[in-house]
Nucleic acid binder design. Structure first.
Lengths: 353, 353
DNA sequence: AGAGGCTTTGCACACGTGTGCAAAGACGCC
DNA sequence: GGCGTCTTTGCACACGTGTGCAAAGCCTCT
């Protein structure tokens, strides 16, 4: 009696376990485990009875315990900075959806700065994550080696890895192609003095967009008239425009490495130089952020297919070839030009809105 | 010899475990465990030797196994919808930071719609999360009961729980106070026909902001001149403004339940009615989204202290009183008015930018 | 009816860690 | 030197689940 009472008191503090269900359904604990494992060998009638008993006592398998011996946690680590940046916010949302569609869940680490990535990644790794998605942060060679040792697939989204050490799989927008699209557009609209506004130097996204742009211009017989750096921010765009538009040979078009800087350029052009967009200056951005569609801007921009990006990242995770090795696989998602009104339109084209 | 070789082969596929470290350091496995537990009883010299050995073999404790018998996973479930909404994106970023500061990590579930919340929450719960933060989704009474049974603290951010069943702790901005701030501002600026643009009916955030607004107006001897609903979206704001501004007794000020709708109202007022903001119409938003600061809008708005919101949510999680019970504790974070140029300024006040 | 094959079930071990308990060792005091 | 106290260490069990293996049950075919 006393023993029973003590037992009851202890039970009350514990979770409902598979043993409770087994007792309730009159089967062994192994049968309960099998009832919750899709392909397992259980008689349909037994499974039904067990599931009913489980529902009655409010049982759900403990994912932690399950992970411990299946060696699959169902968790994917995600390292990301500046979620407040609309592009990364959309990416995270799409990534979450893509993971959930496969029964996975993202364990998110917000990196205050790129240096913090290593510690966070180590923390994520201690949860035996089934994979890691690193967005907007460098991957140090040290941590990459650890992932390789743990046989944990790593996917970099829109970033290139540290040159040294094992390479990780890479998923990203086709920045080169996007840059070329803009070059073609500006050339077709008859611009002659195109400028480029970079984000942060030595960033793969900014670099690739620039290379694609200049290559595209060259193919059309044009050269870059000016170049500035705007740190990927609105304020940076304002400042860069100040320098860019004060030049004697003012550019007649600016391609910005992201939308936020493009909005800054437009505002500076209007308020500080009294220019009309796009009559006096064409401005093109990158990302197709929500603000780009606002009536006051109607920014022509290059849209990334965020959903496809997320799908590819998850697919790369499941592909064993994604685990760090010598030859790093790459997935490149095509970009799409969104024609609005911040850039002069070539003959015969119509804006999206 | 053969046995040893087979053993070695199996080891190669396994993770580095505490037993490996114990062997390397010449101590028992228990000592290794204690070396990694801050307050545990180990001789300093022994701990040093063990940590050195651990570093040498590349050992990090398995968080899953640890969670299994400490009953603390170090994971906090976060249910959130529409991360793409800048306010929730900032919230998630702040939440991640606040959790990490306490050694916790957010396991994020993206709810495609409020109905999906229950399944996702159940999934999160199976990972024995130490707590759950629900943002932007209702909490059904069924799942609330399950959390209570599992003794898992639940915090609702900016949402009220289902009226029935156990209540969860609630953290949110002081929406009533925010609404009153706007009422006072508009009254002080001499407006006589204030309108309100609601987000989604029966949403606690929209309702509370409206109540604070109308109460504040009443205190100043004013009444609501008109009221519309805009679904919290830019497009909804455009449409609502269409109806609002076509009225014979056109309002001279509109308070919108969030910034996105406010931007829609401004754009509709300018492009479809040729109004000047703020000469012909004052517009005020809520949230202080990044777009609100853009030069083309300079939206006067009510800023929520997102960092404080996140801090409070984490604090509420750690407070045992936050676990579902009869009396639900509430945390209310004060709001701050950000004066820009989309609303007429009272005498003697100066805009923020 | 009996043999053979297939399905279903339970036992027992494994996953990697934390921790109560007791034993062993170190140290100071009389 | 002996005793008591405090620190340090190891044993062994617990956490909750999955799964290989063998036993048992069932069906079919001869």
């Amino acid at each position: 009696m006393d023993q029973d009472q003590a037992d009851r008191a202890r039970r009350a503090r514990r979770w409902v376990t598979s043993a409770d269900v087994a007792r309730a359904a009159g089967v062994s604990r192994a049968a309960v485990s099998r009832a919750f494992t899709p392909g397992a060998s259980v008689a349909p009638e037994t499974r039904r009875r067990i599931l009913a008993a489980a529902k009655a006592v409010g049982y759900r398998p403990n994912a932690l315990a399950r992970s411990l011996n299946t060696r699959r946690s169902g968790i994917v680590g995600v390292v990301i900075t500046e979620i407040a940046n609309p592009f990364y916010a959309r990416l995270l949302e799409a990534l979450g959806g893509a993971l959930q569609a496969r029964g996975l869940l993202p364990l998110v680490a917000v990196a205050p700065d790129p240096q913090a990535t290593d510690d966070l990644l180590a923390h994520l790794l201690s949860y035996q994550v089934d994979g890691v998605v690193v967005a907007s942060a460098m991957l140090s060679s040290g941590i990459a080696a650890r992932c390789a040792a743990a046989r944990t697939p790593v996917v970099l989204v829109d970033r290139r890895a540290d040159a040294k050490g094992p390479q990780a799989a890479l998923v990203g927008a086709d920045n080169l192609g996007g840059g070329r699209l803009v070059a073609d557009l500006l050339a077709a609209a008859g611009h002659s003095r195109p400028a480029f506004l970079a984000g942060i130097e030595a960033t793969s996204t900014s670099d690739e967009r620039e290379r694609g742009f200049t290559q595209g211009l060259a193919a059309q017989g044009l050269v870059l008239a000016a170049r500035e750096v705007g740190r990927f921010t609105y304020a940076g765009g304002l400042e860069a425009a100040q320098r860019l538009l004060a030049r004697a040979d003012r550019p007649d078009a600016v391609f910005c490495a992201n939308d936020e800087m493009a909005l800054g350029v437009i505002d500076a052009a209007r308020t500080r130089f009294g220019l009309d967009i796009p009559r006096d200056l064409s401005v093109v951005g990158f990302d197709d952020t929500p603000s780009a569609g606002l009536a006051a801007y109607r920014l022509t921009t290059v849209a990334q297919d965020v959903a496809a990006l997320a799908q590819a990242a998850v697919a790369a995770l499941e592909d064993p070839a994604a685990s760090p090795r010598r030859a790093a696989p790459q997935w490149r998602i095509p970009c799409r030009l969104v024609l609005r009104r911040s850039a002069r339109l070539p003959e015969g084209t119509v804006p999206a809105d």
